[in-house]
Design a protein around this nucleic acid. Structure first.
Lengths: 177, 177
DNA sequence: ACCCACATGTAATGGGTTACATGATTTA
DNA sequence: TAAATCATGTAACCCATTACATGTGGGT
């Protein structure tokens, strides 16, 4: 099968990451040397509720990525809890950048609980629609003030997201004319 | 334990639906009496890639909801494949409306593959950011034309979503100044 | 007859969620 | 010192995903 010719083989192999893994790597990159607990907490406190930040997701994820060589684990022995601190390896950083700058995946729509409802909003009466959309607007306005734990760049992004979302909601009513 | 006194009990019980279940119910409401295959196909062809529309998700979901009394199943014997056709029960319609008009859940952010990246875009250089955002813009523009299978209200919503998304992307660059 | 797309599911897998168990640290 | 909270995990469950198995009908 002439292995000498048709063997581009995988030189670097892409390293596929789930979105949660990508986010976790990014968070580690921001903080450098952290425990799983810290990452889970950060996720849990973030206004983005894409993931719950549950221990049952984060601890195994970081263990997985360590096994894959994306993270390096250290267990300092300064008394108290035996904890595990993780930091990015070179491969981990490369994988992170690959995930972060993946424009194809980024362009996808993901899941939006509002969008998936609006698409079927023609099933209910004009009046019910109106009440629903008003309530949604109120709820989003309320979430506008909820701030990121560390008032940083992420906070600015969040504000921008909420504003854009609100602008979109205001256009929905017009789709029924 | 005096059951006669402290028994407001659950009068109607809310009927919790996962988002996929809600979407499936909505789709059935739109079409009335369908097979699991038709629903799965509709999901798969929809430009919203929240769910894959895989048989392994849809068939069990519709079976579950039948067991819960939200759907009624019929197996017509007109030769050929023995197929199962589902339609909404009264409880199913009530559950659908409850899910559809749930303004609290609808106001959530869900998961957005772009947002979760942008939040950490300060990790890379100005130049990398710029290229990434340009590529994302191109990809979204491309998805603008992809149309819903049945050119209906859903199509209008989709167009509106993509336009809003594009508008937001254009503001991102400004967050780094 | 044969092949391929359509159709109806089931099975194995993966990974995220809630709950739980346990130990350490702070606070009243 | 007892209770509450912080911290570090593990376990069981749920459910969506990819693959697979099977069966039917239409085209060649």
């Amino acid at each position: 099968m002439s292995p000498s010719i048709d063997a581009p083989t995988k030189v670097t192999e892409p390293v596929e990451l789930t979105d949660l893994e990508g986010v976790v790597l990014a968070e580690i990159a921001q903080r450098g040397r952290v425990t799983s607990y810290a990452i889970a907490k950060a996720q849990a406190e973030s206004p983005s509720e894409a993931w719950s930040g549950s221990a049952g997701a984060v601890y195994p994820a970081m263990k997985r990525m360590t096994a894959r060589g994306l993270l390096v684990a250290a267990t300092p022995v300064d008394g108290g809890h035996t904890r595990t601190e993780y930091s990015l390896s070179a491969e981990g950083r490369a994988a992170l950048v690959g995930w972060l700058l993946d424009a194809d995946r980024a362009a996808g729509l993901g899941f939006d609980p509002l969008r998936s409802r609006v698409v079927h909003l023609d099933l209910v009466s004009e009046r019910e629609r109106q009440i629903f959309l008003d309530n949604v607007k109120v709820n989003i306005e309320a979430s506008r003030s909820t701030s990121w734990p560390d008032a940083s760049f992420a906070q600015k992004v969040h504000v921008s997201v909420v504003r854009a979302r609100l602008a979109w909601v205001k256009t929905i009513r017009g789709l029924f004319d």
